[in-house]
Amino acid sequence: MNHIDAEKLVTIWEDRRAVQNLMGIFSGHYLLKKEKNIVAEMFSGRADISLGINTGYYEGREAVEGYYEAIHQKNLLTTKLIMSKYPEEFKDKTPEEAYGCGLLNYKPLDTPVVEIAGDGKTARGIWTCRNSYSDLTTGGPVTFYEWGWVAADFVREETGWKIWHLLILNDVHVQAGLEYYEADKPYPPVPGFEDMAEFRMPEPNVKVTLRESYSPNRPRTPAPEVPKPYETFDPACSYGRKEA
């Protein structure tokens, strides 16, 4: 390593800690059903933010906001259906107080690799995520397991580090109780939860396969790129869509 003075070293250390804290708070927003606040509180104010998932990118502020707004709408719908289904349990709760009931989604982020750009303006990081979440379906609550990665480009703004380009990629997404190569098996419909059939997440506005989930026929696939030390942001090494 080239010689770096003590003040610079401590600044790098603090920046890495700040980026990791940001992603810890990001993870907590899923647990606490505060997804609707994620863009405003955690993403950059830039117009060119993005979110990539296995099937493509939500590119641009409107698309990313639409993704998290859809999760919020799902939370509202789920809350309404569960409160209606179990009126006795919720007789003392307002919909606002019961918001997010019946859902659990925590994204524990492990295995951090974070690089702060030499110019200090941006950062890149990747984490592994061993997730389980419970969802309300037409067949009642169902739990899914996920194994994958969360990666991001970050940008330093006046209020601190913010997410610029986010990737949430699953290698495995499987319904609890099934083998990892099996397709989901919906449960028989449960009266009162029919409206869940109408809910759909918005499709990515850039449809491209970013990660093919595991199957017995899938070619061996490396993990997403791990950040290397870098001096300044290069769009060719971004967790957003690469420029052609």
Binding site: T111, D171, S215, R220
Partner: peptide, 8 residues
Amino acid sequence: TGWGAVHT
């Protein structure tokens, strides 16, 4: 083919 892993 058919191999995958995730270490946390």
